[in-house]
Nucleic acid binder design. Sequence first.
DNA 1: CCAGGATTGACCATTTCTGGGCATAGCCGC
DNA 2: GCGGCTATGCCCAGAAATGGTCAATCCTGG
Lengths: 251, 251
Amino acid sequence: MKHFNLTEELAHDISGADKEEQLFAALSNAADRMGFDLFALAFDRRGGGGEGASMLVHNYPDVWANVYVGFDLSGTDPIRRAGERSMTGFQWCDVDRYIPLSCGDRQLLKVARESGIGDGYTVPRHLPGEASGSCSFAVVPNARIPLEMLHAAEIVGAVALAAARQLVGTGSYTRRAVLTERQRECVLWSARGKTAGETAGILGISEETVVRHLKMARERYSVPCRQMLILCALFDGVIGFSDVYDWWRPL
Amino acid sequence: MKHFNLTEELAHDISGADKEEQLFAALSNAADRMGFDLFALAFDRRGGGGEGASMLVHNYPDVWANVYVGFDLSGTDPIRRAGERSMTGFQWCDVDRYIPLSCGDRQLLKVARESGIGDGYTVPRHLPGEASGSCSFAVVPNARIPLEMLHAAEIVGAVALAAARQLVGTGSYTRRAVLTERQRECVLWSARGKTAGETAGILGISEETVVRHLKMARERYSVPCRQMLILCALFDGVIGFSDVYDWWRPL
DNA sequence: CCAGGATTGACCATTTCTGGGCATAGCCGC
DNA sequence: GCGGCTATGCCCAGAAATGGTCAATCCTGG
């Protein structure tokens, strides 16, 4: 029962944290008790009104933290990208099962290793339209990752993310723009690669009207171009991957 | 170590399932071993258009299943709604911490109880733009919910959802085209809403060259327009939502 | 060494998109 | 009814994207 009780205990500590410092202390203790050297919790809330909030709690080496923040690597971090493709935690050495690694990605991981970060385990969580976050536990280079603790890490990470969500606050969360049915249809066909003219034919309306719908949709999301309109709709779940999937998959 | 080993064992069984029947059997066994009477796993690929876009595996009483499906209660189900607002599993008796319960919601829960479904624990998971799902474990009315097994249920549920994702079909990524680093960068900035000219300034190269990279990238994916190029890159994990996140709702 | 790919740069004609404006009609809530 | 939202249609000017061709440099694998 050792591990089980440990998980309970750590989860309890973490969920009791009501300040960032307490969360740091609890996570620090948790990482240590589970046999990890490092931890990093990142949580981002995206409010519809634009006032987002985020939290970053970690004990990564300063060298790496400075590089990461300085070069704003969070945008291209392959670990973070993999987190968008997994429903469960994953080991970093397995990221290429989730996403392809580019040269730049490998370079980033290499620099991380040189900065004192070895293998790790990341627990990702997403709330569509509201927030995304991840909680990672890692060891120093060449150290053994405590495989028997990954399930504990999964629980502890999840609890930590829930705690972070509480701390960041769900208060003024407002749903973002909603598209009308017609707008949604136009965005969908646009995402499927149709031009305004083709979409007009499909929907049986004038091309000018399709253009108008897309124009209104762009205004709702306050984006200037079609690419971003489609991405916004995708993230909001207004359209889904599977809506578009079969249009380019058959190749 | 009993619970810990049990979790490992059940997780292994479930992740080994490669058919819906095997998943049913594994979940059935898991629920039983953890002290639950009932289980239900629902997985939805966004969009719902194509075949195999969703999965439902459960051993709920027929009475309830018929009512649920017949009246299409999934749309109003408070448990499901709560699942969209939680990053971790939750007990059904705590749903009002996540969402306000309307009279209709309470009525729905009451009918469920009369149909033989007591308290339960639901593990929700979301992948932005791709899928949402939940895995619930429940007991019959007036039975004690195995509180000491909730963490195990969290793990088992997550693993079951990951398995369902594999079965439904979008789980494993297949490498189609690979973009060069430069192409990837151009696609990324394009996804962030930059025009070829702006991207050129950012990358410090000529606009013509950016256009060329995007052209080559489109050819690799055999798509005619920028929208689909970006979607393909997103599908493949070449770029991620987080890569573009902060650009499409900047201020 | 040579073939092939990656990267860079340029030009052109055509299509498409974007941001303005304008107008009619229907529907819903106050 | 009035105001607001939605849907529809049209016009225009300028910006951007697309598809095609040509050419130079650099690097890597055979």
